[in-house]
């Protein structure tokens, strides 16, 4: 049984604009899925449906076979969402306080919150910054803090919305390593990006969205050649293989 299943998902905005239409997708546990598409193709709207931040106009999202609106809190614990701009995700005055935000919402006892914060910060190698202001961190570190905030919720699935936007080369490498580590530790990864050259080598599957519809889905080696026709830059040069599409050496 897939860990995440999207059935006939459609979202129409109040002004009548169709953001996504009839999306069908099954994601297996432990899979690394890259969702690509040009701006306005509905990638972020799709992501916001995965833990119930947006409710569909039609269709449904199933988590472990159960519709997510049956227990929205459980869905938000299972599906962690790392937003495009970490500045909008960070709500704590210090790094540790920000990580504690999620567990405190779940009303965990203070000692347990403290333990989770320690574990989550250690997992992303930010323990030494625990008392620092989040706004003093670099772009890559802020992204790692956003990941730590999500890890504190103990999710099974982590959705990254454009995780490389605005990062310099070391920042991209830092975040990419973190994503791969999370995948290795058993998390299911859904990564939204149009910068395929940075990450595709590590993905099990590539999905392309165009004008709100899912237009291609399959192994990266087979789908990549259709990318350009849907407004995603073809990252492969002549003779190059998908395994070259990474910023890790």
């Amino acid at each position: 049984m897939p860990v995440l299943e999207i059935q006939d998902l459609t979202h129409v905005f109040p002004d009548g604009a169709v953001a996504i239409a009839e999306i069908n997708l099954k994601v297996n546990a432990g899979e690394f899925l890259v969702i690509a598409g040009p701006n306005g193709s509905g990638k972020t709207v799709l992501a916001l449906h995965l833990n119930g931040l947006l409710r569909p106009t039609r269709g449904k999202v199933l988590l472990d076979g159960e519709p997510i609106d049956k227990n929205i809190i459980a869905a938000r614990k299972k599906v962690g969402l790392v937003f495009q701009d970490p500045d909008n995700q960070i709500v704590g005055q210090t790094v540790a306080e920000d990580v504690a935000f999620g567990p405190e919402n779940l009303n965990f006892p203070p000692a347990q919150v403290g333990m989770i914060v320690k574990e989550s910060l250690a997992a992303v190698d930010l323990s030494q910054f625990a008392t620092r202001s989040p706004h003093a961190l670099s772009g890559g570190e802020k992204r790692k803090l956003a990941i730590a905030g999500i890890l504190a919720m103990k999710p099974k699935i982590i959705v990254f919305d454009e995780p490389f936007t605005g990062l310099d080369y070391p920042g991209v490498v830092q975040v990419l390593k973190e994503i791969l580590r999370l995948h290795k530790t058993g998390h299911t990864i859904l990564l939204i990006t149009h910068e395929l050259e940075k990450v595709l080598a590590h993905a099990d599957r590539l999905v392309i969205m165009h004008k709100g519809r899912l237009v291609a889905d399959g192994k990266p080696e087979s789908v990549i050649y259709r990318a350009e026709s849907y407004g995603v830059r073809m990252p492969l040069k002549d003779g190059e293989k998908v395994s070259a599409l990474t910023w890790l050496k």
Partner: peptide
């Protein structure tokens, strides 16, 4: 716009007013 995104991010982390009380 930013307020909207912050609300989304807080909701995504199960924001609730019944929170862990400070000791």
């Amino acid at each position: 716009r930013r307020a909207d995104e912050i609300v989304n991010a807080m909701e995504a982390r199960c924001y609730s007013e019944v929170r862990t009380k400070a000791t």
